[in-house]
Design a protein around this nucleic acid. Structure first.
Lengths: 199, 199
DNA sequence: GTCTATAAATTGATAGAC
DNA sequence: GTCTATCAATTTATAGAC
């Protein structure tokens, strides 16, 4: 949800929409967006379908609101980084760690964002914003190479895709509060990517 | 398709099933499995729905055949590795490179496999086989650590997930014959994972 | 092995009462 | 803001002719 959208709704609706979205995101995750029917959502939220349609225009808006939440959180990481001083390689490490934190904190929403393929208008919008995100990341990697802190024998665009492919792959198995901790994942990922696995 | 399944069908059916599967996999990829209707598949293959039902029991079997193809190719990489001599770290590098090659060669099938979430019986079977694949990879990484060739300050299970998360993320953007070449992707991935990005 | 025709169930969405 | 009832379209799948 963007600031603009949040502003137009009174407080009570905000909360109920928030709760609705929380359950909906989990259902979309469990069964996939397409495989989840409005009937499924009705059951999961304990409301009737009609009641859901009172809050949103349809299934697609539910997806749009969910992925918008993830995009807002991810772009906030980049915006924060833009305001920072210091070598690009340090800012890159900060973005890496912050991305893992966002991913952990907004796991259902980020997972949905990463699984969106561009079938509907809302999905194509999300894909476009992801591309913009990727371009800004690539620029950061390129700067770090130019500053001499990252090896210059690898293509920056390719490196960016690999690095953030690694980050994104976390959504396929990372579950907060079970298995590996967020801090350990963050440290191991940064260690592997920057220093490599070789002893 | 496993050897067992291949054996029961006469040659002509094998070919038409192969062609059918090729088109079906592309459709599943483009719209997602759930969003693709039998009507869509009918149009894409130039056959009627009834004709498709003559070859397979239903939509789910089409998915099962497709992901089985990917699993066969991936397990072949591991089986080949098991027969090799030499340090585990070298066998790991070989598995990494071979996985990228399999992914490039069987891109639609591997992509489908990686997007399967366990909604149906066929999907749960695929998820289980992926877990087995992951266990065998972890054992290889662990051996490489024990042999002193990989750093021992990182958890092998976590490292395995990160490394093959990176490999798997290729399906989200890698397209053979456009953009980065397969060899460059392979080399860059191995370089990043083993030696790290730091200059 | 492909077709036409159709069954039976489910889909996203709306009307209108309370 | 939630409900019951319902719609039109689409879904997976089958029957049976050629």
């Amino acid at each position: 949800m963007t600031e603009a959208e949040r502003r137009v709704r009174p407080r009570e609706q905000r909360y109920s929409l928030e709760e609705l979205l929380h359950v909906v995101a989990q259902e979309f995750l469990r069964r996939g967006y397409d495989a989840t029917s409005m009937e499924d959502l009705s059951r999961a939220t304990g409301r009737t379908k009609s009641s859901i349609y009172h809050h949103v225009s349809g299934k697609e808006e539910l997806l749009r609101l969910a992925v918008a939440r993830a995009l807002d959180a991810l772009f906030a990481v980049l915006d924060e980084q833009d305001a920072q001083e210091g070598p690009a390689v340090e800012r890159l490490e900060h973005v890496l760690r912050a991305s893992v934190r966002v991913l952990a904190a907004e796991l259902p929403y980020v997972t949905l964002l990463l699984r969106v393929r561009g079938n509907t208008e809302a999905e194509r919008w999300a894909v476009q914003r992801r591309r913009e995100f990727d371009r800004r990341l690539t620029a950061l990697v390129r700067t770090a190479v130019d500053e001499g802190d990252l090896r210059d024998d690898l293509d920056p665009a390719l490196v960016t895709r690999l690095v953030f492919g690694t980050v994104n792959s976390l959504v396929d198995w990372f579950r907060p509060g079970s298995g590996h901790g967020r801090q350990q994942v963050e440290d191991t990922l940064v260690a592997m990517v920057l220093e490599g696995l070789r002893a």
